[in-house]
């Protein structure tokens, strides 16, 4: 639930910064190692958005795979294990823990000027 609340708080902040009347959908990227159950997150999102301009919006979830490989021989793995089964080298895990609010689809107040910039990381507008 706390993940859902964080997503909703940030999506609301961005939507209100753009004077949005309604949000139709958001896209989040979740690292696979966060072990978040997408079904459960969708449910919690539905609960957390009630009474806000995000109510009834869709949440699209993209799972980001972790990059897990042996630093010695480069063998890649799907799960985080400590030592390479091939050469015994250390297996390093990169990524897989991110939680990114990627996109927000919303309806703007028609009386607002067209927006030229969006967020602090400099993302663009796709109308």
């Amino acid at each position: 639930m706390s993940f859902a609340t964080t997503i909703v708080e940030n999506a609301l902040r961005v939507a209100l910064e753009h004077s949005a009347k309604k949000v139709y959908g958001i896209t989040v990227v979740l690292g696979e190692l966060l072990l978040i159950n997408p079904d459960q997150l969708e449910f919690c999102y539905k609960v957390a958005t009630k009474g806000t301009i995000l109510e009834n919006s869709r949440i699209h979830i993209e799972i980001a795979k972790a990059d897990i490989k042996c630093i010695n021989c480069g063998k890649a793995y799907d799960v985080a294990i400590p030592l390479c089964e091939l050469c015994g080298g250390f297996v390093v895990v990169n990524g897989g823990k991110e939680m990114i609010l990627k996109k927000i689809e919303m309806e703007l107040d028609e009386n607002q000027d067209r927006i030229s910039s969006t967020d602090k990381t400099g993302g663009g507008l796709n109308a």
């Binding site: 964080t6 997503i7 940030n10 999506a11 961005v14 753009h18 139709y24 989040v28 823990k97 991110e98 939680m99 990114i100 609010l101 990627k102 996109k103 927000i104 689809e105 919303m106 309806e107 703007l108 107040d109 028609e110 927006i115 969006t118 967020d119 602090k120 990381t121 993302g123 663009g124 507008l125 796709n126 109308a127």
Partner: peptide
């Protein structure tokens, strides 16, 4: 109705 999709790219764990 003016519908837009923005690239937010906000790190929620930042």
């Amino acid at each position: 109705m003016h519908k837009v999709e923005i690239d937010a790219e906000i790190d929620l764990l930042e």
